[in-house]
């Protein structure tokens, strides 16, 4: 456990891009120390909702409230992990991680924390490498290391594996599960991949097609660490989730794209 325990509540959130309604009356809770997965068809507003939860997008209406305990070593309670990694190409792996600690920790403590999270994410050997020298999976490890370095109270992960190939995705998924469980950090995880949803989520919120509404919330009551995606129980949940979003996904796929 990292010492922080924060609950994130979304109350009546509505969002529009100009006249385009994206989210409509979202009420949702990310419980402290648990993983809330957001799934839904393309364009349903999952990433927008995550942006609103992280304070990076101002909702048209509604509020997001944070409540709980933030440990003294937490430097950034709501911490994102980006789909496209968002690494600075002019900084080394260690430099990218160090960026979020600079000005907040003394040099020695900063170096120790960078070394700690690089070891945790298997990047110690690549501390001096440039991001361009790394594979997609390794870049996302840097994104995770950077997020863990600030000892977050809540991780906000926006399709962190979607830019990776299937094998890397499977490997990182298991690593994420281990890291999240050990840290016990409240996590909101956006994905369109149902396997990821059942592998990581304590709760899976299914959003409808645009404008996104919470169609259902499914509880998965087993520890994340011991889950196996080939487990029949999980496969049944995955199938159930697919049945829920199938119609919307097909309809969303035929909709024009709104930039």
């Amino acid at each position: 456990m990292n010492g922080s325990s924060v609950r994130l509540s979304v109350c009546g959130v509505v969002h529009r891009y100009d006249s385009l309604p994206v989210l409509d009356g979202i009420d949702l809770v990310a419980e402290a120390g648990r993983v809330l997965v957001l799934i839904g068809p393309s364009g349903c507003g999952k990433s927008t909702l995550l942006g609103i939860m992280g304070g990076l997008i101002a909702p048209t209406a509604g509020t997001v409230r944070m409540a709980g305990h933030v440990a003294p070593d937490c430097l950034n309670p709501l911490t994102p992990v980006f789909q496209d990694f968002a690494l600075l190409p002019w900084r080394s792996v260690a430099g990218n991680v160090s960026l979020v600690l600079e000005g907040r920790l003394p040099r020695r403590e900063r170096a120790a924390r960078v070394a700690e999270v690089l070891a945790l994410t298997g990047l110690s050997e690549f501390a001096r490498a440039w991001p361009k020298q790394l594979s997609g999976g390794m870049r996302q490890r840097v994104g995770i290391a950077r997020a863990l370095a600030v000892r977050p109270a809540c991780l906000l992960m926006d399709e962190p594996l979607s830019a990776l190939d299937a094998q890397t995705r499977a490997l990182l998924l298991d690593e994420f599960a281990g890291l999240i469980e050990r840290a016990g950090t409240t996590t909101v995880y956006v994905t369109h991949n149902l396997q990821e949803a059942v592998r990581l989520g304590h709760r899976v919120a299914v959003l409808s097609r645009r404008p996104g509404r919470v169609r259902d919330v499914m509880e998965i009551d087993r520890p994340i660490g011991g889950r196996d995606v080939s487990d029949l129980g999980l496969l049944a949940i995955e199938r159930q989730l697919w049945e829920m979003i199938r119609g919307d996904a097909a309809a969303a796929e035929r909709e024009p794209i709104h930039a």
């Binding site: 304070g55 990076l56 950034n76 496209d84 979020v100």
Partner: peptide
Amino acid sequence: SRNLMRMGQAFGLS
């Protein structure tokens, strides 16, 4: 990339 600037903001950089 605006995403890099958003990253900075999301990590609470000044």
